[in-house]
Structure formats: structure tokens, C-alpha cells
Nucleic acid binder design. Structure first.
Lengths: 225, 225
DNA sequence: ACCCTTGCGTTCATTCTGTTCACCGGCCTG
DNA sequence: CAGGCCGGTGAACAGAATGAACGCAAGGGT
């Protein structure tokens, strides 16, 4: 059982994370802290395996808390949960040894994927015996970081999805593209392009809007957000 | 150009690592330290991107040096090079944010693989723009940790792998080949060809892309990078 | 109102994928 | 030398992803 400490100042969100964590086999929420001070105190008295850490705390930045932990010789693994889309923050987090970096908002599937990746890493290192070989270490590192992608609904293919996204990104005119245009540019049919565009629309990565003008039914154009 | 500091007490080995590093495109050996004190002093005055760190130093354990760096707010990335096959050491290293853990003795191929993995991680994070999305962070983490092991996974044979690579190289059309085509050209079944092509794809030596056209499910074509 | 035009949204045959499982040959063991 | 095991292969199969075809929806023109 992996013991988890949740550090999050917003009570509602902390509650949500706790509920998420409890739903995953092998994980157990040990405690919830709302400030960095509180977290430090808890960690001094209670053995914890993994910290779910919000970076935005009232009394101290989450990265500083991590640094303080490391300085104190506490090597507990940390999973950062934040809405900070800042490259410098990501790099700092990596250098401080956080196991994963999860951007808010996230779906339960994404959340679970990260926790399960951590569980894999853990079991591989613990189960490896006393004399790990290079390839065992590699496997453990890969389990830690190599993420199983959010599984797509049936009928969709990751390669094709990447192609569609590539076409949308590469479009010089940011006004949007119709399904037929996307299909032509990626070398597939309108039907296929549409399937993926609709998926992207449903998952909020793209917006649909009608394009009026000529005679006939208006076209639907898709634009990245 | 990635600036590298080598920290290794044994002069001969330090020299070897420096030579290895210099042989890899994009890496530049900035300095060599033989003690932790020396390394600290160098880092205070010189900007360094990556530290190749031997754990066994005369004046201080390498992990302690790393912890001291973090405590001092120095987030330089660290690649640990050691012969310590100790699980606790590996876990500590991870929690302190080392990018890779390389067991001595190693071949040049293994060494280069780790450095190139780091270079991939770096370029992905730097090139991502200011607003990374979750999947971009995931890709960067995967590049950092997803390693291609030297030894082939079970079920694969070096001779067959060479054959597949030969077929891909000999292809006059550089547009890519399907698994069935590769299989036919090497005199093996599609299933076998696919096994090896997928391995090559996972280790980044080959890219997969769908090939659309007529009715029916699209083919996957594999192309060397 | 009415028709005309044009693209949408869906269905379904088609083709290739991904996986499983039995087989074959070599190697170690008793 | 028999028997079991293991690593590598391919035949067979279930089903996944695509596009041609088609009826209908949604605009403009008169």
C-alpha cells in the first residue's frame, strides 16, 4: 500500500484529490495538509511514500518546500499538481526529483495514469533484488516516466490523431479549417478527418464554428483553442 | 551546445568520460573536478547544463553533493555514474532529481544513449514554447527516462534485426515500407517483420505513419529517421 | 414559398492490424 | 539418449480504422 500525503490549500480541491487517490488500488491517503508548515510537521512524524503537492501554497512555494525536504534529507517522492505552465518551473521540478508533473485541470484517467506509473516504478525497484543491473534501472526509470497515453476511444488511432493536430498547427491561417481541407492536407478522406476533429471538439481541444458565404449548406470549420 | 562538468576523482576515468562526451554531437566538456569542493566552486562561477557525477568522491558522497546543490538553489541536471548497485542509492538519486543513473562499467553506446536522451528532453522542453501542455510535458519526461536498452528484449534476434535494417536501408523509395512489404523482402512473415519494426519504432530508430488511400483500414508504414 | 446548391452526418463493405497460440529447433538436465 | 524448457517464428482470427456512397440539413437565390 502506497501512503500518500496531499498538500493543497484549497479544501475542496484537496478533498477531490483525496477521493481520486482513494479510488485507485494500492494507494491510501494518509493525511491532508493545507500549508507547507503543516506538511513539514506531518512528514517529520509520519512515514509517507508519495506527496501530491500543489505548488501554490499560502506560506511557501511548493518547490521551496521540496527543496527544504531534500535539504533535510527527506527523500519522499513528490508528484507536482499545478496549473503553472511555466518551463522554468517544470525544469526546477525535475531537478528536484519530482516523479511527475500534472497540469490542472486533469481528468481522472490522466491522474490515475500518473499514479499507476509511479506504482510500477516502485514495484520494479523494490522487487528487483539487491543487485540491480543497468537494464533493470532503465526499466524502472522508464516506468516512472514513460506514460501510457490516455487511451483513445475505439475507432481512433494515435498516429492519425497526431497527423490531424499537426495539420491544424501547421495552418498559416489561424482562422480554422473545414474537415474536407484537413482531410486533403493530411492525405486522408473528409470522413476520417471529421472523425478526429469531432473527437478533438468533444475533448475541448478544438472549437467548431459555421462558415457562411456561398450557396449551399455552410461549412463547419475547426479551430484550435 | 550542452555544457558538461565531469566530477570524478580517478584522473584516468575522468579523462575517459571527457573523451566519450566530446565524441557526442552537441556536448562540450567545460571542466573536470576531482573533488566535491572543487565541483561546488566551479559551479558557483561557471554556468553548467549537466553534471556527470561519480558518487564515490574523496571528500563527500556524490548524493550529498547533489543535496547541497539543491539546497543552494542550483538546479543543474545531474547524471550519476557509479558502480553502486544499491537500491537505496538509486531511490535517493531519483528523489534528488538525477536525470539518469549509469552503472559502471558501461559501453560507449550505453553512455551515448543516456546523453542523447538528455539532449532530447532538453530540446523538447526548450522548444515547446511558453505554454506547455500536459502531453508535451509527458513527452519530455518520456524522452528523459524512456531509454533504449542495449540488449534486445526477449523474442528478438540480432540477425533478424540486422536483416530488417538492411531492407529498410536498401529501399530505393525513402517513403517508407509497410510491415507486409518488409516481411516479403526479407523472406519472413508480416508478423515477424512487424515485431522488429515496432521495436525499432519504440527505440526511436524508425517512425510509424499511416498510409491512407483506398477503402479499408490504412496501412502503417515505417520509415528510418 | 419554392427550388437549387453544397456540405454534413452516417452507414457499411473492405482491408489491414494486432494478438494469440501452436510449432519447430536448439540447449540444458538428468 | 529421452525429456523438458526456452527463444523465435508464422498461420489463423477477431476486430479496428478507413472511405465510397447516400439521404438529409441548411443555407442562398428568385
Amino acid at each position: 500500500m502506497i501512503r500518500v500525503l496531499i498538500v493543497e490549500d484549497e479544501p475542496l480541491i484537496a478533498e477531490a484529490h483525496a477521493a481520486y487517490t482513494a479510488r485507485i488500488d494500492g494507494f491510501q491517503v494518509l493525511s491532508v495538509s493545507h500549508t507547507a508548515q503543516q506538511a513539514m510537521a506531518t512528514l517529520r512524524t509520519t512515514p509517507v511514500d508519495l506527496i501530491l503537492l500543489d505548488l501554490n501554497l499560502p506560506d511557501m512555494n511548493g518547490l521551496e518546500l521540496t527543496r527544504a525536504l531534500r535539504a533535510a534529507g527527506i527523500g519522499t517522492d513528490v508528484l507536482v499538481v499545478t496549473s503553472a505552465r511555466d518551463l522554468a518551473v517544470v525544469r526546477s521540478a525535475v531537478s528536484l526529483g519530482v516523479t511527475h508533473y500534472l497540469l490542472k485541470p486533469f481528468t481522472f484517467a490522466t491522474f490515475r495514469e500518473k499514479l499507476l506509473g509511479y506504482a510500477r516504478y516502485r514495484s520494479q525497484l523494490l522487487g528487483a533484488g539487491q543487485v540491480p543491473a543497468q537494464h533493470e534501472i532503465d526499466r524502472a526509470f522508464a516506468a516512472l516516466r514513460g506514460t501510457a497515453p490516455d487511451s483513445l476511444p475505439k475507432g481512433l488511432d494515435q498516429n492519425t490523431l497526431d497527423l490531424v493536430l499537426g495539420v491544424l498547427r501547421a495552418d498559416p491561417v489561424p482562422s480554422g479549417l473545414s474537415a474536407a481541407e484537413v482531410g486533403a492536407r493530411m492525405g486522408a478522406s473528409r470522413v476520417t478527418a471529421r472523425r478526429y476533429l469531432e473527437h478533438l471538439a468533444e475533448t475541448g481541444q478544438v472549437v467548431r464554428s459555421p462558415r457562411y458565404g456561398g450557396p449551399g449548406r455552410p461549412e463547419v470549420e475547426y479551430r484550435r483553442v
